[in-house]
Design a protein around this nucleic acid. Sequence first.
DNA 1: GCCGATATGTTTCCACTGTCTATATACTCT
DNA 2: AGAGTATATAGACAGTGGAAACATATCGGC
Lengths: 217, 217
Amino acid sequence: MANPRVSSAARARRPARYHHGDLRRALIDTALSMVTEEGAWNFTLREVARRAGVSHMAPYNHFEDKSALLAEVAALGFQSLRQALEAATRGHPRSARQALANISAAYVRFGVQRPAHYRLMFGAELAEKARYPNLQAASDATFAVLTSVLERGQASGQVGRGSVRDQALAAWSLVHGLTTLLIDQRVGFLGISTAEAERHARQAGTALFDGLRGKTD
Amino acid sequence: MANPRVSSAARARRPARYHHGDLRRALIDTALSMVTEEGAWNFTLREVARRAGVSHMAPYNHFEDKSALLAEVAALGFQSLRQALEAATRGHPRSARQALANISAAYVRFGVQRPAHYRLMFGAELAEKARYPNLQAASDATFAVLTSVLERGQASGQVGRGSVRDQALAAWSLVHGLTTLLIDQRVGFLGISTAEAERHARQAGTALFDGLRGKTD
DNA sequence: GCCGATATGTTTCCACTGTCTATATACTCT
DNA sequence: AGAGTATATAGACAGTGGAAACATATCGGC
């Protein structure tokens, strides 16, 4: 509008951009906002396009379909979650038990604070993740945080031997399941507070840790 | 077709039925078939009506919308899951540790064998379960199986004191999280066998049990 | 600087969906 | 038998996903 050549130092890394500048990123941001605002992702792709100010077919230049767009939103969520977990581990570098409790609390806090986003990250429509390498990579990187904590714990003798991958799977199952159950209110904990959710997480995470320390069966 | 008065001993409890006989039940069955066959529930309500051989508006006489229909399908799943868990407990009435391991294995087996149905049961579109009392009741009854096992374990001194509800929540979190992760292949276990899934479940369930037996924090 | 190739965005069009309204049919009860 | 209600149908509507044809901006080579 103002200047027909707004391009120069527009938006992302690439200097001058095409028509929109960086529609791909704009669509992801818009979709993320809509997910968190509306608490669901049952909006239409046309609606996303409208809010981004482009025609209803423009998104198809960047995403095969709505699921592909949502996969990017979910991938952002995994990155954010990974950072939260990494920050939680830094608190207690000595005690693996404390580290696991902290990770559990941080994990559940993340989910409880952004339920819709968390649900999307593990939602069914993105289950065939083979289609979404970005999502898979972000998910794997998050899982790796847990694995590395357990590896260090084993190295220092605080965690029982056994397969680290199995142990990490158990730990992730615990916090993921807890988060899901709390979010979806499948148990009778309607309106549970974040603090209480974290308490559950610490308690359960510690119990599992103690179990792993003992016999590995 | 054959006889205009086929009604007599038609289908469900009620003797003679209306036009269709028991369209409500037929629609639930059809939807269940479609979920398991197609591995998803992104079909349209019109499609369900077509397969049931009725007009596209007939379902609205029995369900407010598609979600309400899916909620019934999910409720059936919870009933089936509850039966599977109850059968698993009957194997080892003496050892709570064994019972929990059996329950864990049965739970994960259920999910791995019917992934789409399981996903639906915990899917986001049915999260506001307050709308679906049947679903909530079925879900609660399933949770109760776990609770009762832990209660008996506490009574016989095999399980640490603490809040039974908290312990049950932890146990359910573990198996639910494991099932979800396996189903959605969020971890690198592509094409995991049912037997291996059960092994993971037993192992993790036992570890948690041992942790609960120790300190309750 | 100019030009074709390509990437990006728009407009138009179609089948289909969810849902509203009006109408028809079957069952219940008295 | 007839009134009232529950069940099913038919038609219409706006909105959707997506294909096709078209328009425009940017890039790479010259």
